[in-house]
Structures are given as structure tokens and as C-alpha cells.
């Protein structure tokens, strides 16, 4: 053990207080405080902040929102700007509930996220988002039964050989917590059973698609607008996804734009603008007439409803996660 010697370092002979010129030190001090105040304070001043429209939510809807926002800026150059951030459906709903954003783009009904009716929320149903199963081209399987799909996603089916395909291990590619397409899988295919914990978790449709395309043996699910030729689309039971007739595909989420209370005139105008966008199918949003309305009964929106008629939250979400902790 080496001996430790404490050396008292000579204090730097700083200027003695007597010589401290008031101007220099106070000036610099004032500069620091003023700088901090300016940087944090000035933009916060209500006068400086514009009445922008903040939209957060499903990554599957982001391309549509960006295209719409761009057109909005061109068509209404003097109106408030639209600010879009991704983050997932749950994120959009939660941040809308807190008031962090002005509108949420979601492919999960808000009542199902919050565990109660989103009373007074405005809603614009944009249409259906078919959730399509995609696999790596090398797996050698083009159709699965619902039971086999559940087996693949939960990790019971380990190799494609078990389904008559290639001798390739199954790699499940899934989405993170906030995703609407994961929600569809959990509720419409798995009945609430968790997916295998060996799955690769990606945080957007695009990332799932790219991972499936690049990983031998991979299976994933994406919103239909994101399908590319780099992957093979899987049939489910008797159904096959047809781009020309997407309404017949059984797995789908309902895409919606949600906002709270009345909304500012600008927000209302933007929602109506979004409702008028004719080419939603380009972004994978199909069917249903888009009309703004007020969310009254969750039943009407196709949200899951419990036996007592009350809306069901994401199953088993404990304390607060389904809204209880918001008091």
C-alpha cells in the first residue's frame, strides 16, 4: 500500500476582495443570469409563443400527418403551424390527456387506453389500418392458421419446419408498448397472452419491416401501408391481404385523430382539413367515411367493453397505468 500524502495545494492568490472591481464581477454575474433568463424565459413569454398545433401519436400515421401538415402550411400560410412528433398511440393519448399536446393520432381507441370513456373528446375516425403479417422471403410459408400464428408469436413454434417451411429458426419482430398494431395482435390474435420475450422490439412500422426483410426466419406485423416487396405477406386462415380490397382482411386497427374539449378554431380547421384529404389510401388508411364528431359512447367506437358494459382498459393494466393515477 503506497503511502498517501496529502499535499495542501497553495491557494491561488486570487484578487483580494478589496481589488474586486464591482463592474467586472457583477457585470459577468449579471450576464450569466440574464443569459439564462433570456434562454428559458423569453420564448416562454406568452406573447412569443405561437398557437401551434401539437400532434403526437402513432408512427403509422406520421407519414399521413406530415403530408397533411405540409399541405396545411401551403394552403393556410398564416394559420398556426402543425408540429408532429412520433412516439406511438399510447404516447399520443397520454400526452393529450395531460395537455402536453393538442391532438393525438392513435390506432387504439382512447377509451381503451384510459380505461374509461374519454368524455368530451373530439374524434375524427380516419379509417381502418389493416395490420398485415410479413415474413422474411426465405421462410417458405405463405399461409398460417390463427392457432399457428399465436404459436409463432408466443414462441411455441420455434422453427418454420414445424409449419412445413424452411429449416430456419423463427425470429419474432414486434413493436414497443405504445403501438396500435401490437395492441391489435394482442387482442385479436393472442387474447391477451404476452408475446415471446425473445422477440426483437422495434419502435416503428418501418423498422419492423426493415428488420423482417433483413433477418432470416423473421416474422412481424406492420400496417398495410408499410408493406414493401422486400418481405412476403402471409395469409391468415382463409384470408389473404389484397391491396385492392383491403377491407376484407380481418386484422385491423381503427385510426383516429383525437383532441380535447372544444379545441381552438385553428385545431378544428386543421381537423376538417385532414378529413378532406382524399388520398388517405396512399398512406394505408382505408374505408370508412371521415367525419369529425364527439366521442360519446365507447361502444359506438368499437372499443372493448367489459361484461358490466363499462369500457375495458388494456387488460390487467394495474394502478394508474390505465388512468387511475391521474388524480
Amino acid at each position: 500500500m503506497p503511502m498517501r500524502v496529502r499535499v495542501q495545494r497553495p491557494r491561488r492568490p486570487g484578487p483580494s476582495p478589496r481589488y474586486r472591481d464591482a463592474w467586472g464581477s457583477r457585470g459577468a454575474g449579471a450576464a450569466v443570469l440574464l443569459g439564462l433568463a433570456l434562454v428559458i424565459g423569453a420564448p416562454t413569454g406568452t406573447g412569443a409563443r405561437p398557437a401551434g398545433i401539437r400532434v403526437m401519436g402513432a408512427t403509422s400515421l406520421v407519414p399521413f400527418l406530415i403530408a397533411t401538415a405540409s399541405r396545411w402550411h401551403v394552403a393556410h400560410p398564416t394559420s398556426p403551424e402543425v408540429h408532429v412528433a412520433a412516439g406511438g398511440s399510447l404516447a399520443g393519448i397520454y400526452q393529450l390527456e395531460r395537455g402536453t399536446v393538442d391532438a393525438a393520432a392513435s390506432d387504439i381507441p382512447p377509451s381503451a387506453v384510459l380505461g374509461r370513456a374519454a368524455a368530451g373528446w373530439g374524434a375524427l375516425v380516419l379509417g381502418r389500418l389493416p395490420v398485415v403479417l410479413v415474413v422474411h422471403p426465405g421462410v417458405g410459408v405463405t399461409r398460417v392458421s390463427r392457432q399457428n400464428l399465436a404459436g409463432l408469436l408466443t414462441g411455441r413454434v420455434r422453427s418454420w419446419q414445424e409449419l412445413g417451411g424452411a429449416a430456419e429458426n423463427v425470429v419474432v419482430v414486434t413493436r414497443g408498448l405504445g403501438s396500435g398494431s401490437l395492441w391489435v395482435m394482442q387482442h385479436q390474435v393472442l387474447g391477451g397472452t404476452p408475446l415471446t420475450d425473445r422477440a426483437v422490439v422495434q419502435w416503428s412500422n418501418g423498422a419492423v419491416l426493415k428488420t423482417v426483410a433483413a433477418t432470416p426466419g423473421a416474422i412481424g406485423f406492420v400496417d398495410s401501408g408499410f408493406v414493401r416487396r422486400s418481405v412476403v405477406v402471409l395469409g391468415l386462415g382463409g384470408a389473404m391481404y389484397q391491396p385492392r380490397d383491403p377491407a376484407r382482411w380481418p386484422l385491423f386497427a381503427t385510426a383516429g385523430l383525437y383532441w380535447r374539449q372544444r379545441g381552438t378554431p385553428a385545431l378544428t380547421a386543421f381537423v376538417q382539413f385532414a378529413a378532406r384529404q382524399p388520398d388517405r389510401t396512399r398512406f394505408g388508411i382505408v374505408g370508412e367515411e371521415a367525419t369529425p364528431h364527439e366521442e360519446r359512447s365507447p361502444r359506438a367506437r368499437g372499443a372493448p367493453v367489459g361484461r358490466d358494459g363499462r369500457p375495458r382498459g388494456l387488460d390487467g393494466w394495474p394502478d394508474g397505468l390505465a388512468g387511475g393515477g391521474h388524480s
Partner: peptide, 14 residues
């Protein structure tokens, strides 16, 4: 990074 917006702040997840 992946959970910072996806879970409500005043819940166990947040």
C-alpha cells in the same frame, strides 16, 4: 428513450 413518452407520468410505469 423508448418509454419516456409511452407511459403516463403519474402511473407506476411513468
Amino acid at each position: 428513450l423508448t418509454h419516456l413518452t409511452a407511459l403516463p407520468p403519474a402511473s407506476a410505469g411513468g
